[in-house]
Measured scan of single mutants.
Amino acid sequence: MTFKAIINGKTLKGETTTEAVDAATAEKVFKQYFNDNGLDGEWTYDDATKTFTVTE
């Protein structure tokens, strides 16, 4: 399945996608990506659209 992340950061904005077997796996991938890029913020997840949003 394809999962999307919308990034609303102070220094980084945009979208990225990942292929994962479930939402928990996708969340781990996205959180690692955000940690690697120095992002920290509020997380939400919309199961209907398979979209994570992080707002810094």
Score class of each variant (00 low, 15 high):
25 T>K: 04
48 A>T: 10
8 N>D: 08
56 E>T: 11
14 G>Y: 15
19 E>W: 15
54 V>K: 02
37 N>W: 15
8 N>K: 12
22 D>S: 05
27 E>D: 02
5 A>S: 03
51 T>W: 00
31 K>V: 07
9 G>R: 05
46 D>T: 03
38 G>N: 10
7 I>D: 02
56 E>W: 07
55 T>C: 04
2 T>Y: 08
25 T>R: 05
33 Y>D: 00
26 A>C: 01
19 E>Q: 14
19 E>Y: 14
2 T>E: 12
38 G>D: 05
43 W>N: 00
26 A>P: 00
38 G>Y: 06
51 T>K: 01
11 T>N: 13
38 G>P: 03
43 W>T: 02
38 G>C: 09
19 E>V: 15
39 L>P: 02
32 Q>M: 09
51 T>C: 02
12 L>P: 07
2 T>G: 07
7 I>P: 00
6 I>V: 11
15 E>W: 14
37 N>T: 11
47 D>K: 07
55 T>M: 07
34 F>D: 00
54 V>I: 14
43 W>H: 01
15 E>P: 05
47 D>E: 12
11 T>A: 09
33 Y>F: 13
25 T>L: 05
12 L>R: 09
18 T>G: 02
35 N>G: 12
1 M>F: 14
6 I>L: 06
22 D>F: 02
44 T>M: 07
44 T>G: 04
17 T>S: 11
20 A>N: 02
45 Y>L: 02
27 E>C: 14
19 E>I: 15
53 T>E: 03
42 E>A: 08
51 T>A: 03
49 T>G: 02
16 T>M: 15
23 A>H: 07
16 T>G: 04
9 G>I: 14
21 V>G: 06
41 G>R: 05
30 F>V: 01
3 F>Q: 04
3 F>A: 06
22 D>E: 02
1 M>P: 12
37 N>L: 15
17 T>C: 14
46 D>L: 03
17 T>W: 13
42 E>N: 07
7 I>A: 07
51 T>I: 05
56 E>C: 13
41 G>T: 09
20 A>G: 02
44 T>W: 07
28 K>H: 07
34 F>A: 14
39 L>G: 04
16 T>E: 04
31 K>I: 07
42 E>C: 12
11 T>F: 13
39 L>F: 14
36 D>S: 10
26 A>D: 00
1 M>T: 13
28 K>R: 13
42 E>H: 10
46 D>M: 02
54 V>G: 02
24 A>L: 11
2 T>N: 08
55 T>G: 04
6 I>A: 03
53 T>S: 06
28 K>V: 07
51 T>P: 01
34 F>K: 01
37 N>G: 06
26 A>E: 00
21 V>S: 10
40 D>H: 13
5 A>N: 03
48 A>K: 09
25 T>H: 10
4 K>I: 13
8 N>L: 14
22 D>R: 00
18 T>L: 12
23 A>R: 12
28 K>G: 07
52 F>V: 02
55 T>D: 05
41 G>N: 05
48 A>N: 10
27 E>T: 03
48 A>I: 10
1 M>I: 14
51 T>L: 03
13 K>E: 06
39 L>N: 03
19 E>C: 15
26 A>Y: 01
25 T>F: 05
28 K>W: 08
49 T>F: 03
44 T>N: 08
50 K>T: 02
45 Y>M: 00
40 D>E: 13
52 F>I: 01
3 F>S: 04
49 T>M: 05
11 T>W: 15
56 E>S: 07
31 K>M: 08
54 V>R: 02
40 D>N: 12
52 F>H: 01
35 N>M: 14
43 W>I: 06
23 A>F: 10
50 K>Q: 09
8 N>E: 07
25 T>N: 06
38 G>L: 08
20 A>C: 07
10 K>C: 14
46 D>R: 02
25 T>V: 06
31 K>H: 05
40 D>S: 13
13 K>R: 13
45 Y>V: 00
11 T>L: 11
3 F>V: 05
17 T>F: 14
12 L>C: 15
30 F>Q: 00
7 I>L: 10
36 D>C: 12
1 M>N: 11
21 V>C: 10
52 F>Q: 00
18 T>W: 12
56 E>L: 15
33 Y>W: 15
15 E>T: 11
13 K>Y: 13
37 N>R: 14
30 F>R: 00
55 T>V: 10
21 V>K: 11
4 K>A: 05
17 T>L: 10
10 K>N: 11
17 T>Y: 14
34 F>S: 04
15 E>I: 13
15 E>S: 09
12 L>A: 06
24 A>C: 12
5 A>K: 00
38 G>R: 06
14 G>W: 15
56 E>P: 12
16 T>W: 15
56 E>N: 06
55 T>L: 06
28 K>T: 07
38 G>F: 13
24 A>D: 08
1 M>D: 13
40 D>P: 03
49 T>S: 10
23 A>K: 11
44 T>K: 08
37 N>Q: 14
49 T>E: 04
51 T>F: 01
45 Y>A: 00
35 N>Y: 14
47 D>S: 09
56 E>K: 04
3 F>R: 05
35 N>T: 13
27 E>S: 03
42 E>T: 12
43 W>F: 08
21 V>D: 09
25 T>M: 10
13 K>H: 12
50 K>W: 05
12 L>E: 11
53 T>H: 09
40 D>C: 13
54 V>H: 03
52 F>A: 01
16 T>V: 15
29 V>T: 10
4 K>V: 12
32 Q>W: 05
47 D>L: 06
11 T>C: 15
6 I>Y: 06
52 F>N: 01
12 L>Y: 14
28 K>C: 10
5 A>D: 05
32 Q>C: 06
34 F>P: 01
46 D>P: 01
49 T>Y: 04
44 T>L: 08
53 T>N: 06
43 W>L: 06
6 I>T: 04
11 T>D: 09
34 F>Y: 07
23 A>C: 11
28 K>A: 11
21 V>A: 08
35 N>P: 03
24 A>N: 07
9 G>V: 13
9 G>E: 02
35 N>D: 10
31 K>R: 14
51 T>S: 04
18 T>P: 00
50 K>D: 01
2 T>F: 11
18 T>Q: 04
52 F>S: 01
47 D>W: 06
53 T>L: 07
24 A>W: 10
18 T>A: 06
4 K>S: 05
5 A>W: 08
38 G>E: 04
7 I>T: 04
13 K>D: 06
47 D>T: 05
10 K>P: 10
14 G>M: 15
12 L>I: 11
49 T>V: 04
11 T>M: 08
50 K>A: 06
39 L>C: 10
15 E>A: 08
6 I>G: 02
2 T>S: 09
13 K>T: 08
14 G>H: 14
49 T>D: 03
7 I>Y: 15
31 K>Y: 04
22 D>P: 00
18 T>H: 04
1 M>H: 13
21 V>F: 09
23 A>L: 05
52 F>C: 01
23 A>E: 04
2 T>L: 13
16 T>C: 15
56 E>Q: 11
26 A>H: 00
19 E>H: 13
10 K>D: 07
56 E>G: 05
11 T>E: 10
14 G>R: 10
16 T>I: 15
6 I>D: 03
14 G>L: 15
1 M>Q: 12
45 Y>T: 01
5 A>P: 03
32 Q>R: 11
6 I>W: 03
7 I>K: 00
45 Y>N: 01
29 V>M: 11
31 K>F: 04
29 V>R: 07
26 A>S: 02
52 F>P: 01
48 A>F: 10
24 A>Y: 08
17 T>V: 09
53 T>Q: 05
3 F>W: 03
9 G>Y: 11
8 N>M: 14
17 T>R: 07
52 F>M: 01
11 T>S: 12
42 E>L: 12
39 L>A: 05
11 T>P: 06
56 E>I: 15
44 T>F: 09
41 G>M: 13
3 F>Y: 12
13 K>N: 10
8 N>F: 13
9 G>H: 09
17 T>K: 06
17 T>P: 01
33 Y>T: 04
55 T>F: 08
